[in-house]
Design a protein around this nucleic acid. Structure first.
Lengths: 362, 362
DNA sequence: CCGCAATAGGGGGAAATCCCCTAATTTTCG
DNA sequence: CGAAAATTAGGGGATTTCCCCCTATTGCGG
């Protein structure tokens, strides 16, 4: 657990320990053979089915897992999540014959560090292992083109204004223009106008299509911390450095205040908002956030329950509870529910927020 | 693996082997002590954290796992799914301090056999263990009341007609009345009428609310196999024996034919339909089906990809591929993607279908 | 065979939605 | 500060939706 994790196989002059998991002995042999050519790397074990994996992991404690997730008695996504939860420092490189973009997307979302296609040359596999061990992500070249079509519209999608987003969120909950106007303290005409422009930007014709669009492209519900004034850092991966942050608070005013503060502190963040548990979970299911700032008091509901649900769906998300009236018992149960911290609303200024966000990098 | 599973601890005269997992030594001691009073049961091991669990499972191969899922380095839902995939015959009884209904619902959905609240008496725990080993499901009494509020409206929800369901499905995809009318070969007026009645039955005012309702109560999208002519088997759990079946086919006519056949063969089934991968996945995410009958040809898409996605989201679902033009290569890749069978459309009659559905019980 | 429910179609009116326009005010940013 | 963008508000009109009313036709079960 302690000590050197990144690049330690160099510094410590000890070989990187790799575990190989695939149900075909032939494939294992081929891979083992190819990897033998790599110095500083040792294949310390082989696994041929699901149940055998975890004991091997626990016994060998490898630095890297090379795994074909299509094994018998094995649930790929659940296993990867479980592996990442239990061995956060270990690198996971998936080898597979499937090139389905959504499938790969799912595995990457579950936390794998690389995805190598079996039909690619073994030299690529060696490269993949090295890259992954160096802390990079690796995806076989043939998949990259498919995957960029996912991340590209995320960056290139239409940019909505704050008001349009507020209204779109209410639309998602099924409100009509009158209700939205009352809720936001506006005239119906204003709402109509916002909607008209919203439709135009989304390329839709009706409120129903708009909600559908929002559900299929959840990223448009995000507010970029800074409205992208700077140039978007040309060479790097477009989505890689992106951090998504979810704000859950039933108070519109405070949410706005929080949103601005987060935008200042972390301009590259994608900020999502929710005012109740349902819409929060809706957001979490579509875009698992790196960080969730959750108010303990959510009208009739409470942030503790919200925390537990977020952690159930997206264990990788860090949840920070916020309260105006710190309570010892709430504090305890909040942490037990999976929150990493419990902050007093009064203490939450830019400095503290920066601290919280910097902690994400760990 | 083979042989006696149900009630074998009686017949075989061997003690049931139970593994205990909890991060608090005190709790483990208390439970172990309580369970010692049970004859025919032996606590063969204890685990105190996530990484230690799987090696213990693999080494001890217990018949029952008693586990507090709030352990360090542990992702509850993923772990449970993984455990169920790797050790399908083992009973899993969760002990927890949380009484959040949704949380429990999630764990039950992941396949646990029982959920015992820590604040309940230890005598209840002993009972729970026995019931679970006997093949029943167990939920602490305090939770039952919360959970029935989930399953009750599922049974008591408004019953929609076939036409209303067809239209509702198209509504979900964002179509307006004209488009729906064209798609279904009806006049706009007819669509309006169906919608008016649909709204009345759902208790909503607009198409948007209707779609929202459908997303929040996915069960109303199901067609009961038989329109519940028989009495609903009074004493039993209302949803327990219920089987959900998803039909994925882009051909409306064939889908209808298939729906009727399934209704005949399996009157207690809840039948869901989808005409493309997106709506199929939408359904799967809301209601993981026991069985999915998927056409290999889905317009531009293909059933292989659909199979893989279904298995990724809901590994417990059995997928059966159906094709009008059986192809050796399709057959192979279909099974590789996780389908349990590959049927020729011509061979698919009531008898074969019954066979497929009976296989679910295994 | 009769009844009942589902299906299909239509008339008409009140309301909501959608879309074009202008214009005042505020916010934001260079 | 000044320009640009966002926000708010309204007029007016075309269209759609929603919700009553009504009438056939079809299919299915007692």
């Amino acid at each position: 657990m302690g000590g050197c994790t990144e690049g330690w196989y160099n510094r410590c002059m000890k070989k990187t320990r790799l575990l190989l998991a695939d149900d075909h002995a032939v494939v294992r042999a081929g891979i083992r053979n190819a990897l033998n050519e790599l110095a500083n790397l040792e294949v310390v074990g082989e696994v041929e089915d699901g149940p055998g994996l975890f004991p091997a992991l626990e016994k060998l404690r490898p630095d890297c897992l090379l795994i074909d997730v299509a094994m018998p008695s094995f649930d790929p996504l659940a296993a990867i999540r479980q592996i990442r939860a239990g061995y956060p420092d270990m690198k996971v490189l998936v080898i597979s014959a499937y090139d389905d973009d959504v499938y790969v997307q799912g595995l990457l979302g579950a936390g794998v560090h690389g995805y190598h296609l079996k039909d690619q040359p073994l030299s690529d596999l060696k490269l993949a292992v090295q890259r992954v061990l160096a802390g990079e992500k690796w995806v076989s070249s043939r998949l990259v083109s498919k995957l960029v079509s996912f991340s590209e519209p995320a960056a290139a999608g239409p940019t909505l204004t704050t008001r349009q987003l507020d209204i779109l969120r209410l639309l998602q909950q099924g409100m009509d223009n009158q209700t939205i106007a009352r809720r936001m303290g506006l005239s119906v005409k204003t709402v109509e106008n916002h909607l008209t422009r919203l439709y135009r930007q989304l390329g839709v014709q009706s409120r129903l299509e708009a909600v559908n669009y929002a559900n299929q492209h959840p990223h448009i519900l995000a507010i970029p911390g800074q409205t992208a004034a700077q140039k978007p850092a040309p060479p790097e991966l477009p989505v890689a450095r992106q951090v998504s942050i979810l704000l859950v608070d039933d108070n519109v005013r405070y949410r706005r205040q929080l949103r601005r503060m987060v935008g200042k502190v972390c301009p590259q963040a994608m900020i999502y908002e929710a005012e109740n548990i349902d819409s929060a979970m809706h957001a979490v299911q579509h875009v698992p956030p790196k960080l969730a700032l959750v108010d303990v008091v959510l009208g009739e509901e409470d942030g503790i329950r919200c925390t537990r649900r977020i952690k159930a769906v997206s264990p990788a998300s860090r949840v920070v509870l916020i309260s105006a009236y710190p309570d010892r018992e709430f504090h305890r149960s909040g942490l037990e529910a999976g929150a990493v911290a419990f902050l007093d609303k009064k203490d939450l200024d830019a400095a503290v927020l920066r601290q919280v966000i910097d902690d994400l990098a760990i």
